[in-house]
C-alpha cells in the first residue's frame, strides 16, 4: 500500500475515539471549512519529517539556525525544542524529555480553510505556506492551528510559520534545522519515494511512530520516533521557566519581551 495512504489510515484508526469530540465537524462543514484545492509545488512529492527523539540532545542548534535562516523576530520561533524535566513517581529517577516542535504540515490542516483570502495554502507537495503579500494579518490561522506553530511576525505584520525551508529544498539544500542537527535527529524527505531515508525509516518503525494531538484529526506529517505518549498532547507539567519571580512577585528572566 502507498505509504502516504497507510499513514493516513493508521492515524485515522488512532483518532476514532477522538472523533466523538468533534461534533461541529459534521454541522458546519457543508463546503465551508473544507480543504480548498492545493496549489503549486511538485504533485509527485509529499514532504514529511521524522524526528528521532532518541538522538535529540536538546541543544537548540535547530532553533538557532532556523532563527538565523528565517529571521523570525526575537521571542517568536518557527521551531523550538520544548524541554521538560521528568521525575518518576515510583523511583524518583530524573530524566529530560526533549520535544522539537515545528509546523506539522498537516494533511488536513485546520489553518488553511479558515484563511479568508487564501494567503495560507497547501502546496501539492504537502508543504503549508503563507503568501505574505496577500495575508491581511487577521490571525485567524494562528487561532486555528492546534500546535501553536504560527505567529504574527511583528516586522511583516503577517502570519509566519515553518515552511520546511521550501526555498532551500528548491535549491537542493536541506532545511536549516536538519542541516544543523547535531545528533542527526531530524530526517526530511519525500514519502512518495519508497527509497528515501524517511520512507525506509517509516517502514521500519511504523508501529512506534507518534504524531502530536492525533485526536485533532489534522493528520500531522511530522512523525516522532521514541516519543512518550504522555507528551503527544499538552503535558501535565508544572511551568518552570516563567515562574521565576523576585521577592516582590515580579517575573524575572524574560528578556525578549516586546521591545
Amino acid at each position: 500500500m502507498d505509504l502516504a495512504r497507510r499513514l493516513f489510515l493508521g492515524q485515522a484508526a488512532r483518532i476514532t475515539a477522538g472523533a466523538a469530540f468533534v461534533p461541529l465537524a459534521s454541522v458546519a462543514e457543508a463546503g465551508i471549512n473544507d480543504q480548498p484545492p492545493r496549489r503549486g509545488g511538485d504533485p509527485e512529492k509529499r514532504y514529511a519529517m521524522l524526528i528521532d527523539l532518541r538522538r535529540c540532545i536538546g541543544c537548540q542548534a535547530c532553533t538557532v539556525s532556523c532563527h538565523i535562516e528565517n529571521q523570525a523576530p526575537l521571542g517568536k520561533f518557527r521551531t523550538i525544542v520544548s524541554q521538560s524535566e521528568v521525575q518518576s513517581t515510583e523511583t524518583g529517577g530524573l530524566a529530560q524529555f526533549m520535544l522539537p516542535r515545528l509546523c506539522n504540515h498537516c494533511d488536513n490542516p485546520p489553518c488553511v480553510p479558515v484563511c479568508p483570502v487564501g494567503a495560507t495554502f497547501q502546496r501539492e507537495d504537502g508543504i503549508v505556506v503563507v503568501d505574505s503579500d496577500r495575508c491581511v494579518g487577521c490571525a485567524y490561522c494562528v487561532q486555528a492551528c492546534p500546535y501553536d506553530a504560527r505567529f504574527i511576525n511583528e516586522r511583516t505584520q503577517t502570519a509566519d510559520k515553518c515552511t520546511f525551508c521550501a526555498h532551500r529544498l528548491e535549491a537542493g539544500l536541506l532545511p536549516a534545522c536538519v542541516e544543523s542537527c547535531v545528533g542527526g535527529a531530524r530526517i526530511i524527505g519525500d514519502i512518495h519515494d519508497p527509497k528515501s531515508q524517511i520512507s525506509r525509516m517509516i517502514d521500519e518503525h511504523y508501529d512506534e511512530l507518534k504524531v502530536l494531538k492525533p485526536e485533532k484529526n489534522t493528520s500531522p506529517h511530522v512523525f516522532y520516533l521514541g516519543m512518550d505518549e504522555r507528551f503527544a498532547t499538552r503535558p501535565a507539567a508544572v511551568p518552570g521557566l516563567w515562574d521565576v519571580r523576585d521577592h516582590e512577585g515580579q517575573e524575572l528572566g524574560y528578556e525578549y519581551a516586546e521591545h
Partner: peptide, 22 residues
C-alpha cells in the same frame, strides 16, 4: 484588529469560500 488593515480589499479580491471569515 487586522495587522494589515490597508489590505482589507484583499477580502474582496481573493475571497476564499471555505472560510467563515470570508
Amino acid at each position: 484588529d487586522l495587522h494589515q488593515p490597508m489590505r482589507f480589499w484583499h477580502f474582496y479580491a481573493y475571497p476564499n469560500p471555505t472560510s467563515w471569515m470570508a
